[in-house]
Computed example of a mutant assay.
Amino acid sequence: MRDQFSEGLKTALRARDQRRTATLRAITAAIQDRDIAIRQENRGPATNEEILAIIQKMVKQREESFAIYAQAGRADLATVEKEEIDILNEFLPKGLSEAEVDAAIVAAIAATGAEGAKDMGKVIGQLKADYPGRIDFGKASGKVRAALS
């Protein structure tokens, strides 16, 4: 994934695309921050899963900002946030549809042998392992809870 970001940054710099350049630099800086934090734990550089989590967090932050700017009537700032969200989403794997999420939850419940709400952590852990970066776990946890009750 790191190569993808560096190549994208080079392309954006050549094209003089300021928004894409700034967004890719922000991604690179966030990854470097994570690498520094990991180094203190005596581990190697951030894994692809950790990088996906960083990008997802960045998307979520920009979505919140977009909503605030849109509500405040600041279309200019909302547009900037929307453009950054679109750029960040290019690097995320395609998310699962609602039907696919439901099927994944049923499969995870069967795979873990979950029987009640106390087993919710097992099911979420299974989903995170099987579908990293492809499911919004904020929404999926409610569906898992409903399926287990």
Rank of each mutant, 00 (worst) to 15 (best):
G133V: 05
T11R: 14
L92G: 02
I68Y: 11
D3R: 11
R145I: 05
R62H: 10
E63N: 14
A22W: 06
E63Q: 13
L24S: 00
E90N: 07
R62W: 02
D3L: 12
S65G: 08
V123P: 05
I109W: 00
F137Q: 01
E115H: 13
K122C: 01
A37Q: 15
G133L: 04
A75G: 09
A78G: 00
A75W: 11
V101L: 11
G8H: 05
G44V: 08
E63W: 05
R14A: 15
A99G: 04
A26N: 12
A70Y: 10
E7Y: 12
Y131D: 00
V144G: 05
K143E: 01
D35F: 00
K82N: 14
L13W: 02
A29C: 04
K118I: 10
A72F: 10
G73E: 04
K10P: 03
F66C: 05
E83P: 06
K122W: 10
D76T: 03
F66T: 01
S141T: 15
S141E: 11
R145G: 06
Q61F: 10
I68M: 15
A72V: 05
D130Y: 04
G8W: 03
Q71W: 07
D86Y: 09
A117W: 13
E90R: 08
E50F: 00
Q18F: 09
A75K: 12
K118H: 13
K94E: 12
K118F: 11
L96Y: 05
V80I: 14
L24Q: 01
K122Y: 08
F91M: 01
K10M: 12
K82C: 09
G138I: 06
L24M: 01
R43H: 09
R62F: 03
A75S: 11
R2D: 00
R134P: 01
A78V: 02
K122P: 05
R39E: 15
E49M: 08
I27F: 08
D136P: 03
L96T: 00
T21K: 10
M120W: 07
A53Y: 06
G8Y: 02
R145M: 11
T47C: 01
R2P: 04
A67V: 07
A15F: 06
Q32G: 09
A104V: 03
S6C: 08
E83L: 14
V59L: 02
M120A: 11
I135E: 02
E63A: 06
D136H: 08
R25I: 12
F137N: 00
N48E: 14
I124M: 10
R62V: 05
I31M: 09
D102A: 12
L13I: 14
A108D: 01
L52F: 05
